[in-house]
Design a protein around this nucleic acid. Structure first.
Length: 762
DNA sequence: TGCAGAGGACTTTTT
DNA sequence: GTCCTCTGCA
């Protein structure tokens, strides 16, 4: 990973000559505003830009420009992005531009950068530098425990709600002592719970995601020398997706940029769709007031979409009152300008089945015109909508992938495995202990566990150590007695192995999961998805083996960086939520489910009122502006949702778009429509030639894995000794074939059993 | 202790 | 329709 040795750098390192004097080359191909944004290197700069105006390009070119002029050395530039994907992309671009090593540049997500800083200075807040980063599941359990201990009824005060309140305080940069109890008529005190929660986290030597930023903020505020160090170091600060920053991130940026004041923020207030998790559009509005002599540049030339699509989006977003306002125009000579300027299609259909069919028909038409599947995307409001499309895609043999939903590392079995590993690395990780001690069942029921917790508290030790001691003192009965001894023995043995350099770390993990009986537990399970879970666990050990030198590195990666977009390049139609689609673009975009209640979502309107409606509208805006060439908006009068049929009116957003940009067709089969059913009932077979018809995608693993890759293997028959390729394991040859399961001898990873869907012919 | 069955909720989601 | 949590009984 890039930037890993940032702290070790000192100023004596010589500059890379390759980097210098390339500035002219860099500015080529930029328009006037972009050029201005790149070359304005003095003082605070706010770049307000619409969708598709080349934000990332500006930010990365700017970084490269600064480096090329020698205004700063790489490690004096800080660039913050929101997703790992974005930072990866930027990193590649900068490397490309300046053709030199940029390893030492500070480029990454807020969380990743803050983790680095926090590990360096954690002792200042009595936190060990090996702290673990806990996930929302652990957070929830911790809160629940606190509530229960205080005798608070968790059915009336759900842990998730309490956690949400605490999280919002963290988003605002507020410590427990700064929070006043707003809720006077309630007997629960959020500040007190917040205080207790923080205390517990500290005891666990753990931090949550909010803490990563909040702790750093606290350290910088209380330690002048540390603050000065970073203020001096960061001569240039750049922020992407500024509209998504929350207050604590804003405060952090403000602190860090105070000395040099060379901060450049890029954002689009019309694309702020994360206020529900603490993002503050206000940060954009505040920018000019906060920084004296700040300059604002607007990028309004769009390189992505056709004029009709842009105009439709503009006319919709104009219904929002809280916006800075900018109008997008198609950039001259852009591909978008050269494309046929088709109107936005609006279709009303009878039900969700027809909706899916209609989209399938269009997809097939596009395919006939040789548009690749990867140029098409269906953007939905809620994850629940994806199912219908999946069913239809499967029955029509169209390869697709669902992006979003549960990520690999969020799956229960992966989290369990991680808890096993965490407990091995840190025996005081009580949360991990609680999660796995009775998984599989080891005879530790409520009563026995209570005894362990009590013993631990009385003797001021971790749960694990309590178990160890109680086992030694023969304090368990029945099944728990033998199981406790075995559990402790396994862990003690592996802890020693962990220190042995001759033993590979992934072997330790395999051991742990096997001998603890965790894998056996799934093997014994008769449910259809158990098999998939075991595959996932194998995948996990594979990932560790392939990518990590040690377990510690893996644990940090898993909580901060791990994403599974590795299989992103397939020839597949994408099904994504509107939130997930931000930053992406497709030639052909379908926006189904534009109905009142679903979009805008009724829940949103109930809770958030007008402001929430505006956010939904921004979401619609994001959806429309993802399209480069063709766009379809669909609304269905009936929809099967939550187990019943619901009748909905078309979304108000449709009527808010100026009709001159729309091509409205009423395909509702119950009205008198001119719609020709045969148009889509006739099934063309042109795509069957290249894809096989076996139902291999129906297997459990895919049914189970939420990021699904249903691309059909182009090879239906495998042969012994055939050379094949696997995403994680690389090249190998087939040793045995039994149905869908292949045994493959990989050149690097050795012998593995793999589902046929995972491999491709080499 | 562990399982079966009832009852309730069901927006979006990065790190 | 489905998933998760809680309760109560064997």
């Amino acid at each position: 990973m890039f930037g890993d040795n940032i702290f070790e750098l000192d100023d004596s390192i010589t500059e890379n000559k390759d980097v210098l004097n390339q500035s002219d080359k860099l500015l080529k191909g930029l328009n006037k505003e972009q050029k201005e944004a790149v070359t304005t290197t003095n003082g605070p700069l706010l770049v307000l830009s619409g969708a598709g105006t080349g934000k990332t390009k500006v930010l990365t070119t700017r970084l490269a420009y600064i480096l090329s002029l020698g205004l700063a050395r790489p490690w004096e530039c800080l660039t913050v992005t929101f997703t790992n994907k974005a930072s990866k992309e930027m990193y590649e671009r900068v490397t490309n531009y300046i053709g030199a090593e940029v390893e030492s540049v500070w480029l990454g997500t807020f969380h990743r950068i803050c983790t680095k800083i926090l590990r360096k200075h954690s002792h200042l807040i009595n936190l060990d530098s090996n702290f673990t980063i806990i996930d929302d599941d652990d957070q929830k359990r911790l809160i629940k425990k606190i509530l229960e201990e205080r005798g608070i009824d968790t059915s009336k005060n759900p842990p998730i709600a309490v956690l949400g309140r605490i999280q919002r305080y963290k988003d605002k940069g507020l410590n427990p002592e700064h929070v006043i109890n707003e809720n006077h008529h309630s007997h629960i005190s959020i500040p007190a719970l917040y205080m207790e929660y923080q205390k517990r986290l500290l005891e666990l030597n753990a931090v949550d995601f909010g803490d990563l930023i909040l702790h750093v903020l606290n350290i910088l505020k209380k330690n002048k020398d540390v603050l000065e160090f970073y203020q001096n170091r960061f001569k240039y600060i750049m922020v992407d997706e500024y509209q998504d920053t929350n207050v604590s991130q804003y405060l952090l940026l403000r602190l860090l940029s105070q000395k040099h004041k060379n901060i450049c923020c890029v954002g689009d207030d019309d694309q702020s769709i994360y206020s529900w998790r603490g993002a503050e559009v206000g940060n954009i509005l505040r920018f000019e007031k906060e920084y004296d002599n700040s300059k604002t540049i607007r990028l309004e030339r769009n390189y992505r979409s056709t004029q009709n699509i842009l105009s439709a989006a503009s006319s919709l977003i104009q219904n929002n009152s809280n916006r800075l306002g900018k109008d997008l125009i198609v950039a001259d000579n852009s591909e978008a300008q050269k494309s046929e300027n088709e109107k936005v299609n609006v279709l009303t259909v009878y039900n969700d089945i027809e909706e899916a069919s209609k989209i399938i028909t269009e997809i097939q038409n596009l395919r006939l015109k040789s548009a690749p599947y990867s140029s098409m995307a269906i953007l939905v409001r809620t994850a629940a909508q994806t199912r219908k499309f999946e069913e239809e895609f499967i029955s029509h043999n169209i390869p697709y992938k669902v992006i979003g939903g549960l990520k690999f590392y969020e799956r229960a079995e992966i989290r369990d495995a991680l808890a096993y590993i965490r407990l091995l690395v840190l025996s005081s990780d009580n949360l991990a202990f609680e999660r796995i001690i009775n998984k599989p069942t080891r005879g530790f029921g409520k009563a026995t566990l209570q005894n362990i917790y009590q013993y631990a508290n009385q003797n001021r030790m971790s749960f694990y150590n309590a178990l160890k001691e109680m086992s030694k003192l023969n304090m368990f009965k029945g099944k728990a007695k033998s199981q406790a001894a075995m559990f402790v023995e396994l862990y003690e043995e592996l802890k020693i192995a962990l220190k042995d350099d001759n033993i590979e770390h992934y072997e330790i993990i395999s051991h742990l999961l096997e001998d603890s009986g965790y894998i056996k537990m799934w093997e014994n399970e008769k449910t259809p998805d158990a098999k998939g879970r075991i595959e996932n666990l194998n995948e996990l050990t594979g990932v560790i083996r392939e990518n990590f030198e040690n377990i510690y590195g893996f644990l940090e990666h898993v909580s901060l960086v791990m994403d599974n977009d590795s299989n992103d390049n397939g020839e597949t139609v994408s099904i994504i939520t509107l939130h997930g689609a931000k930053g992406l673009e497709f030639d052909n975009v379908f926006l189904p489910g534009w109905e009142e209640g679903l979009f805008p979502h009724s829940k949103t309107l109930d809770e958030g009122g007008l402001e929430a409606l505006e956010e939904e509208r921004r979401l619609a805006y994001v959806g429309i502006t993802r399209a480069k060439k063709k766009l379809w908006i669909l609304s269905s009068s009936t929809r099967f949702l939550y187990g019943q049929y619901q009748n909905n009116n078309p979304s108000r957003f449709i009527s808010e778009i100026s009709p001159e940009f729309l091509n409205i067709k009423n395909n509702n089969s119950h009205s008198n429509s001119s719609y020709n059913y045969n148009e889509y009932q006739e099934e063309p077979n042109y795509y069957n030639k290249s894809y096989n018809n076996n139902d291999s995608w129906g297997n459990n693993f895919f049914a189970n894995k939420k990021v699904k890759e249903k691309a059909v293997s182009s090879n239906s028959t495998w042969s012994i000794n055939q050379r094949v390729f696997h995403q994680k394991f690389g090249y190998g040859r087939i040793v045995t074939i039994s149905g869908e399961k292949l045994e493959i001898s990989f050149e690097k990873a050795g012998l593995k059993k793999i589902m046929a869907n995972f491999i491709e012919a080499a």
